[in-house]
């Protein structure tokens, strides 16, 4: 087990260093003067230009700059935003709860619907229900989610007037930011009705962001269940006279869950990509919207830091999933 753990972690470290290198190179590929790119100031005197170049350490050899950057990153220093002049890490941490809250809800939505739908489709293989689930999930998988968001706004907000169009909370409420998670903050505040209002704002973005993971989970659950249901031990369980429900829910699902959990873990990257679009459509003040705006404002340090942290996050989660998988499945653990 220790050997397995160490090899997996050993594989991640060079990749992480590679990502740091990638973001380091990325910002240097931006055409134009490095001082303008980093500071956003234009038309400054040559003396000031040289001074800034020196202050930022850009006049030193590249490899020194790189090690300096790695050192900074390892201490949580991602540079300073050109636009707000605040540390990129602070900006990220301020906005991250909004994205995390949305992502958690989207994932819950996807798992709570996708898992049972996939199980039922496998159990009733070949039925109308199976075809409906597979058809719907392929459609969900093919969905341009930015359009899906607009369509839901058109139906539920514009036509039916059921849900709000944008943001996390109506302007009528004033809620202090304590945790950054709107549902918790509204509960802590003494504004009556603000919790429900925040929940209301979550509905459409949750559906939009959860659609693709939902489709993937339903498809994966179905195929994993079909595989397991054909095994001998399932026949044995049925022959013993166990109820169908017990065979499916306890004997089969448990083993089918292993690949499904992996897929759920891999959806985190999809969620981060989807958050860019979902947050843009719903003006959701999270990381995704921030990244798009950073690009529009040519705030390259913010983009650089954002890409780095998200990649690190995705990698960490993939590593955890990988380790869990090894923990659950001895065949993986002992394979060289």
């Amino acid at each position: 087990m220790l050997r397995f753990l160490l090899t997996r972690i050993g594989l991640v470290i060079p990749t992480f260093l590679g990502i740091i290198l990638l973001t380091f190179v990325l910002i240097r590929l931006v055409p134009g003067d490095p001082v303008e790119v980093r500071v956003g100031e234009r038309g400054i005197s040559p003396e000031r230009h040289a001074q800034l170049l020196h202050d930022m350490g850009l006049d030193r050899p590249l490899y020194v700059q790189f090690f300096d950057y790695v050192g900074g990153v390892l201490q949580g220093d991602l540079g300073t935003s050109v636009v707000t002049q605040r540390p990129v890490m602070d900006e990220f941490l301020t906005l991250f709860p909004a994205t995390l809250e949305l992502a958690v809800f989207a994932m819950l939505f996807a798992v709570l619907i996708g898992l049972p739908a996939g199980v039922l489709a496998a159990v009733k293989r070949g039925s109308i229900y199976d075809h409906a689930v597979m058809g719907t999930s392929l459609t969900g998988y093919s969905m341009p989610i930015f359009w899906w968001g607009l369509l839901l706004i058109l139906l539920f907000s514009v036509t039916l007037d059921w849900t709000p169009v944008a943001k996390r909370l109506s302007d009528d409420y004033f809620v202090d930011e304590v945790t950054g998670f709107m549902l918790i903050d509204t509960l802590l505040s003494d504004e009556p009705g603000s919790f429900l209002n925040a929940l209301h704002h979550l509905v459409l973005p949750t559906i939009v962001l959860g659609t693709v993971p939902l489709a993937v989970i339903a498809r994966m659950t179905r195929s994993a269940m079909l595989e397991v249901l054909g095994e001998d031990y399932i026949r044995t369980a049925r022959a013993k006279g166990l109820s169908s429900l017990r065979v499916v829910a306890i004997h089969a699902l448990r083993n089918a869950l292993v690949p499904v959990v992996t897929v759920i873990g891999l959806q985190v990257g999809t969620l981060m990509g989807g958050a860019i679009l979902t947050e843009s459509v719903f003006s959701w003040p999270g990381i995704g919207k921030w990244l798009v705006e950073s690009i529009a404002r040519r705030d390259y340090p913010a983009l650089q830091g954002g890409v780095l942290v998200i990649a690190a996050l995705v990698m960490t989660i993939n590593l955890v999933v990988d380790l869990l998988y090894g923990l659950l499945n001895p065949r993986i653990r002992h394979r060289r």
Binding site: G273, I276, I295
Partner: peptide, 22 residues
């Protein structure tokens, strides 16, 4: 293969956006 791992660890839309930004 490590280079491929690095590309894969950044969500594709985000990486594409970053490349287009440059």
């Amino acid at each position: 293969m490590r280079a491929m791992d690095i590309i894969l660890s950044v969500p594709s839309l985000l990486l594409a956006l970053a490349i287009v930004a440059i």
